[in-house]
Design a protein around this nucleic acid. Structure first.
Length: 424
RNA sequence: GGAGAGGUGGGUGAGUGGCUUAAACCAGCAGUUUGCUAAACUGCGGUACUGGGCAACCGGUACCGGGGGUUCGAAUCCCCCCCUCUCCGCCA
């Protein structure tokens, strides 16, 4: 959520930014926010003045009573009673204006960083780096959805039987590969200074609003109606919400947390071509890295987080490219996002395996996540997060890219974790 | 699931309608003193919205779990809700 003061004071910058997203209603919404804001402030001023007067009068009544001047007290009492009617009216107006303003603010996406290219969609993203070479596969190479059947390591039919489509059952070496990747990702993160966190995988409504998953993506989360809880779509939600309503001091920063959780996504309406096998699931595993930074350091941190993720892909020997997302392809909360895509040799496509974003103050504003410096200045902090990494597409890529006529080769770095070097 | 207790500032914790501008203590910050440390003494506190001012700064309003009500006036009285803790029961 953008700050009203930013919209008011940097209107053109906000509008220019939103234009890069091709966000259609930008001017209408921004103008409406500013109009409501002006009325809100006027109303508040009136209300505050009237309350100040009533407060003084009320105190005076007490003094008059004590002094035995009952007549004067009675007439003043009538005045305050009359003022109170106006207070009620004004309070009603103010409340309505605040609600309206909040609603409008929820509809306005984040302002992209100046480096973010304008654009409509995936085709306008900017390739900023590419690493590795695409392996040449042998004749008869298979996509991963056939490989998992051939080696009996992931079973979609069993998942359908006990849960439904999109809930795979990992078996034998398939299950052990999952566990190996999770441990590898966590170990690597801890090694460079992230603190490991194991959060709950259901969150309350307030947390959903804190990270901006509500009210926007209501239908994308599984909801436990009985208890009013949401299954998390990513560890970003609980881990970032740890810092909701928190004022951090300089010594607390930077915050670097990493956590593994299963992730649950309803993916309502998003099934179609290219979502076979592991490409899109309702439940999957992911290690997420989350940072909280001072504004002046956040873009440096974003680059560092990318380099870390790239390092993981290199250790796993996977060919990848790094994209700077254009305005139109970025999530609504983000100010700047890099995507990492791994080339899947059998599918002959790039698969997104990681998304690393700087949200600037957009989440912090909702979370009320602030920093109070030694000088006593309070400011909103910047939040950042990235997948490091999500498992399914990494597994798909490893299976496809490393297949040989004799079986699937496990990347060297993972062998100590899996305890085997071939799936055959 | 049953019963009970409780939610007050960074922490502990007082506060039964106006003398509360939320006591006191602890922690924190600043200053005085000091050869240094410690101690003592003095002073200062939060957050949000908002008015004036280029700013330093000076004001206003709100906030005692949340929402409503009574009253000229509510941390305090009334109603509803939420949360936490303890005990019992059940259970991994």
């Amino acid at each position: 959520m953008l700050q009203v003061a930013v919209i008011r004071e940097q209107t053109n910058k906000v509008l220019d930014g939103l234009r890069k997203r091709n966000f259609k209603d930008a001017e209408t919404l921004v103008n409406e926010v500013m109009l409501i804001d002006q009325r809100r402030r006027d109303t508040q001023k009136q209300l505050d003045d009237l309350k100040a007067k009533s407060n003084i009068d009320s105190k005076k009544i007490g003094e008059l009573m004590k002094a035995g001047k009952a007549d004067e007290a009675t007439s003043l009492r009538a005045t305050v009673s009359a003022d109170k009617e106006n207070v009620k009216t004004l309070e009603g107006e103010l409340d309505a204006l605040e609600k309206k303003q909040q609603e409008l603010l929820y509809k306005i996406p984040n302002v992209p960083n100046e480096k973010v290219p304008a654009g409509f969609g995936a085709d306008d993203n900017l390739k900023v780096y590419e690493h590795g070479t695409v392996p040449k596969l042998h004749d008869g190479a298979l996509p991963h959805w056939d490989l998992i059947k051939k080696y009996d390591i992931i079973d979609f039919d069993l998942g359908v039987k006990i849960s439904g489509a999109g809930f795979p059952v990992y078996k034998g070496k398939g299950a052990r590969l999952q566990r190996a990747l999770i441990n590898f990702f966590l170990d690597e993160a801890v090694k460079i200074g992230y603190r490991e966190i194991q959060p709950p995988i259901v969150v309350n409504e307030t947390s959903g609003y804190g990270t901006g998953n509500l009210p926007d993506k209501e239908g994308q989360m599984y909801f436990v109606n009985e208890d009013g809880l949401y299954l998390i779509p990513t560890a970003e939600v609980p881990i970032t919400n740890l810092y909701r309503d928190v004022i951090l001091s300089d010594e607390d920063l930077p915050i670097m947390n990493a956590g593994y959780t299963p992730c649950f996504r309803r993916e309502a309406g998003s099934w179609g071509a290219h979502v076979r096998g592991l490409n899109r699931l309702h439940q999957f595993d992911k290690v997420e890295i989350v940072q909280i930074r001072k504004p002046e350091e956040s873009y440096q941190a974003l680059e560092e987080m990318c380099l870390y993720v790239q390092g993981l892909l290199e250790k796993l020997e996977l060919p990848y490219r790094k994209l700077l997302l254009c305005g139109g392809d970025m999530g609504v909360n983000s100010a700047m996002t890099y995507d990492m895509e791994v080339f899947s040799a059998a599918q002959q496509r790039w698969l997104e395996v990681s998304s690393v974003s700087n949200f600037e103050t957009f989440q912090a504003n909702r979370l009320k996540l602030r920093n109070k410096s030694k000088e006593g200045k309070t400011q909103l902090l910047h939040t950042l997060n990235g997948s490091a990494l999500a498992l399914p597409r990494i597994v798909a890529s490893i299976l496809e890219n490393n297949q040989t006529p004799d079986g699937i080769r496990i990347p060297k770095i993972l062998v100590p974790y899996t305890g085997f070097d071939m799936i055959n």
